[in-house]
């Protein structure tokens, strides 16, 4: 049974290996597809291009910084930043700073999600809940989060509570509207199918609506998690004695620009890693979409 398939595969490999001219041509075509309007995806070439762009930025940085054209105080060289990183990890206990920052982000993010998911779904389904909450949500949504810092400090002091609350305010009111939108975009036919198969309102929300909106919801959560990091730095700069933002701000005060750069890169790397992790899970969980 496996014979014909194995044979075909074997001969295919041979065929592509024998004539030397064919393979580079295929690769050339793949590269060309990258600049053809709406061409087929080329994951490998796209990855190389992304890595290349990243490296290009690094190289330009390296050249400009090492050439001495820019004062190191303005643009420290990559080597100085690496050294600063090393110092931060070995001398300043940077690991616990990263730990506390990540913990703050996730505490606020989870608190947002746990409330926003059910409330957003209810908002999409019941006009009364939308009418009750939407004006308040829209009002808070337009408040600049840094403006709320004094208030959270007065109410909650300088402990963890005020920081997590600030992050929560910054994300919850955005997330709930994203979730409600995700729920509203579920095709009417899915809901009506559920009803004509005998689902109650609760069953509809749990078994149909939530399942149908899940892929979009995970995307909304991923985007919100990114916002959390933005507000984290605001919270840690203003009132904190720990965390990536605090270290960043302290380094600025002493004019240590390599440390500032190290802090910015740390946040970027954590952000990129968590984003990619969620994308990876998205692809695994929602195979039926890909």
């Amino acid at each position: 049974m496996a014979m014909p398939g194995g044979e075909a595969k074997g001969s295919g490999e041979q065929a592509s290996g024998k004539p030397i001219g064919t393979k580079p041509q295929g690769a050339q075509a793949a590269w060309r597809d990258l600049i053809v309007f709406r061409a087929a995806p080329r994951p490998r070439q796209e990855l190389w291009l992304s890595i290349g762009a990243f490296l290009a930025v690094l190289i330009v940085w390296l050249i400009v910084a090492e050439s001495g054209l820019v004062h190191p105080q303005i643009l420290p060289s990559p080597r100085a930043v690496m050294a600063a990183w090393w110092r931060l990890f070995t001398e300043a206990d940077y690991i616990s700073d990263i730990g506390i920052s990540v913990a703050r982000v996730w505490a606020a993010f989870l608190a947002s999600a746990v409330i926003a998911i059910p409330l957003g779904i209810l908002m999409s389904g019941y006009r009364a809940i939308t009418a009750l909450f939407e004006p308040i949500i829209d009002f808070v949504r337009y408040l600049p989060v840094p403006a709320l810092v004094p208030l959270t400090l007065i109410w909650l002091g300088i402990g963890e509570g005020s920081k997590v609350t600030l992050l929560w305010i910054g994300t919850f009111f955005q997330l709930i509207l994203l979730i409600a939108d995700d729920a509203r975009r579920v095709p009417k036919e899915f809901i009506e199918t559920g009803r004509t198969l005998g689902a109650s309102d609760t069953a509809l929300m749990k078994d149909v609506l939530l399942r149908a909106m899940l892929p979009n919801m995970v995307d909304s959560l991923r985007i919100t998690l990114g916002w959390c990091w933005t507000y984290l730095i605001v919270a840690e700069i203003v009132a904190s004695s720990s965390g990536i933002g605090y270290e960043l701000w302290t380094a600025r005060r002493y004019g240590k620009s390599p440390e500032v750069f190290a802090g910015i890169l740390t946040i970027g790397i954590i952000g990129l890693a968590s984003d990619q992790a969620i994308r990876f899970l998205h692809r695994r969980w929602f195979r039926y979409l890909h």
């Binding site: 095709p187 199918t193 004509t196 198969l197 149909v208 399942r211």
Partner: peptide, 15 residues
């Protein structure tokens, strides 16, 4: 459940 419905658009659940 007494009134079963089949729609024009594909209403099968993709998940």
């Amino acid at each position: 459940r007494d009134k079963g419905m089949v729609f024009q658009s594909y209403s099968s659940f993709p998940w």
